[in-house]
């Protein structure tokens, strides 16, 4: 009997070998090496010595870590829903084919192609005390200017605003792509069914793009937990560590104080947090969709 073309053969695996090699070398290997490092007392100048979970104990006993963890969680809790909601709002508003909407899609997406250096530079111009845009506005209104980048609470808020502005393009585009997949005749059926715009949004549009909402949320959770550049360049984690995120903590421990083992342990904790948050979001959304 002749072999069918669809029969699986090991040699077919050669097609994915280039990618698998890069994946193993750049992702799988560093992940396990990171775990290995987190179990050792190690610096850059010599081989490590096995210390078990001591690095993890040291990390959890470090108040700076706990503060960075709290900052990061607050940042994620505020920035991710903002990105999802604003991205969805923009996508709904721009889900038409006119010249104006094409222009605005391009405009809102353009911030995404900028580097973090440019983004933070722009927002420093906005938030910096004295000649910054916000200061000028406050002065014009006769109000006392807020020192956004050097006041506890406001510094993390400022980083959040810059981040949302920078990252908004991707959620908007993903939502637009999802909205354009919804068959037009569903909306026509809803029009014949006397559905109000609110009912159309809540009963037709949002359920139809539920998977994309979940995807965008997970992508944003993963991305925003890794906040670093904006905080580094806008506030340097200050004042008093109130805007220091976890990645900056890992950077400082690992590459400023050269405590590689402790830095690696903090990295594994961040990895687990991101994994749990993304999985929790996935499970909750899947259960909701099934119901």
């Amino acid at each position: 009997m002749a072999k069918t073309y669809r029969r699986s053969q090991w040699s077919h695996g050669l097609f994915i070998l280039p990618y698998l090699s890069a994946f193993a070398l750049l992702l799988v290997f560093p992940l396990f090496w990171g775990i290995w490092l987190s179990l050792h007392k190690v610096d850059l100048f010599g081989p490590g010595r096995f210390v078990g979970l001591a690095n993890y104990v040291r990390v959890f006993a470090d108040p700076v870590f706990l503060q960075a963890l709290r900052n990061t969680i607050v940042f994620v809790i505020v920035s991710v829903p903002s990105l999802v909601a604003l991205g969805l709002f923009l996508a709904l508003a721009l889900n038409r084919t006119t010249r104006a909407t094409s222009f605005f899609r391009g405009l809102f997406f353009s911030s995404s192609v900028l580097s973090v250096t440019i983004v933070t530079l722009i927002w420093r111009f906005v938030f910096i005390p004295g000649d910054g845009l916000m200061s000028v506005i406050f002065k014009h209104l006769g109000a006392e200017p807020i020192h956004f980048l050097s006041t506890s609470g406001w510094s993390l808020f400022s980083i959040g605003v810059a981040t949302v502005w920078w990252c908004l393009g991707l959620p908007m585009m993903l939502f637009l792509a999802a909205l354009q997949q919804i068959p037009a005749d569903l909306y026509e059926a809803a029009a014949l069914d006397n559905a109000s715009p609110w009912r159309v949004l809540t009963r037709i549009t949002l359920p139809s793009i539920a998977r994309t909402i979940m995807l965008v949320t997970i992508i944003q959770i993963v991305m925003q937990f890794q906040l670093f550049g904006q905080a580094q360049l806008m506030t340097n984690g200050g004042p008093n560590g109130t805007s220091r995120p976890l990645v900056m903590y890992i950077y400082e421990v690992g590459f400023v104080r050269w405590d590689i083992g402790k830095g690696a342990a903090a990295s594994q904790i961040l990895f687990l947090i991101i994994l749990c948050a993304a999985m929790a979001q996935y499970v909750v959304s899947t259960r909701k969709t099934e119901n």
Partner: peptide
């Protein structure tokens, strides 16, 4: 009048059933 107020009902070629309901 808008479609919903014309007192007519339509069956579409693709059926246009709401997939999540």
């Amino acid at each position: 009048l808008p479609p919903g107020q014309r007192g007519v009902a339509m069956v579409f070629q693709s059926y246009a059933l709401y997939p999540h309901m």
